[in-house]
Design a protein around this nucleic acid. Sequence first.
DNA 1: GAGAGTATGTACCGACCAGTACAACGGGGA
DNA 2: TCCCCGTTGTACTGGTCGGTACATACTCTC
Lengths: 204, 204
Amino acid sequence: MAAMPQADGGSRRSANWATRRDAIVDTSARVFAQNGYHATGINELCAANELGKGALYHYIGSKEELLAAIHDRVMDEVLASGARVAASSGTPSEKLVQLGDGLIDIITRFPDHVWVFLHEFPALTGERAETFRERRREYEKRVETVISAGVKAGEFRKVDPRLTTLAWLGMHNYTYLWWRGDRKLSPRDIAQRFADIFIDGIRA
Amino acid sequence: MAAMPQADGGSRRSANWATRRDAIVDTSARVFAQNGYHATGINELCAANELGKGALYHYIGSKEELLAAIHDRVMDEVLASGARVAASSGTPSEKLVQLGDGLIDIITRFPDHVWVFLHEFPALTGERAETFRERRREYEKRVETVISAGVKAGEFRKVDPRLTTLAWLGMHNYTYLWWRGDRKLSPRDIAQRFADIFIDGIRA
DNA sequence: GAGAGTATGTACCGACCAGTACAACGGGGA
DNA sequence: TCCCCGTTGTACTGGTCGGTACATACTCTC
C-alpha cells in the first residue's frame, strides 16, 4: 500500500518488479534493524541485496522511500489487525485480548520491521512522517476506544483511558526489544500472560 | 562515573573542565534526542554548544565517547535508584512501587538522555557496549528479584519472573515516547497508576 | 612580568555519503 | 531477426562526515 514510485502501469515491469521490491524491503529491514538506518550506507544495502547501485535504485527510489516502505509493511498489518478487532463482536475484555494477540503476533512475525519502525520513525520527513503519525495514532485510538468502552460498560474500573492505553502499548511494544524467537513461550502465550496481568489490573 | 578521557589529574583543568563537560553532555543529549545520533554532525554539536571543533573535542574525546557519557549519566541514576530500593525494607509490593516511582522520576527528569539511551544504544561499540549491557541487565535483575520475592512470599501469583519483568519494564520505559511535561499528571501520579494496574494484575 | 599549560578557532584531511549518468545486457513480442 | 524496454553494473559527482594539526589566546602561579 501507500506511496510507490509509480503505480503498476501494466507494463512488463509489474510482473516481477513488485515481488522483487518486496524482497528488497524485507532484506533491507534486517540490515537497518541490525545497524541502524543512518549508520547503514547504500553500498551495504547493495551488498545485502546482491545488487549494484543502479539496480537497487531502480527499485527503491530513495533511501527514505525504502524506510517508508518498511514502515508501511508493518503498519498495514497493525491497522488491519485493529480493524478486524473493532469489527468483531465481543466484550471489551475479549477485544483487548484480541488486540494484544494480534500485536504480539505481528511483532514476532516482523521483528526487523518493527525494530526499524520503533527506532527510526523520526527519520521520516515531510508528508511521509505525517502519514505515519496518523496511522500510528489511528491504532492507538482503537485501543483507547476499547478501554473506554470497558470502563463505560463497568467491566473495567474508572481508569484514565489515554494513560492506560499508553501503558498497554508500552507493555506490548517493548517485546520487540527482547523477543528472539528461540523462546519456549509462543507469541500466543506471551500475549496471554500480558492479558492476564493487564486485564486483571484494570478489572472493576 | 565510568570512562573519562583521563581522571582529574588535580591540574588546573578539573576546576571548570568537568562542569563544562557535563553541560556539553546535557546539551548534546538534547540535540541527539531531536535529530538522532548518526544524523547529527559534529558541526551541529559545535553550534549547539557554541564551541569550535577544537574546543569541543577538548571536552568530548570522540563522538562515541560523548554518547557513552549520555548513557552513563542516566544509568548512574537508574542503578542508584535500584540499589536504594534493594537496600530498603519493605514488602515486594512496596518495593515494586518504589522502583516504578524512581524510574518514572528519572525518565521525566532526563527525557533527552533517556530518549538517546533507548534509541541509540546499538551505536555503542566494543567495551562501551559491553559495559552498558551489563549495567542495564543489572537493573533488570533488580526488578526480577523483587518479583520473584513477591511470588515466593505469596504476595504475587505464580508468574514467570522474567516475562513479568519485561512487561513491567515495557510499561514504564515506554513513557519516554509520549511524556511531554505539560501533562496534568505528575510523574508520581503516572507511577502510581501504573503500579495500580500492574500490582493488581499480578496479585495472588 | 615571565612562564606553563589549558582552552579555543581555523584550516585541513582522507573517507564515505546519497544519488546520478549512461552505456550495455537480455529476453519477449512483432 | 530485430527492436524495445526493463534491468543492471560502473564510473562519477558534489557534499559532508568524524577527526586532527597547529598556532594563538587566555589565565593562573610564581
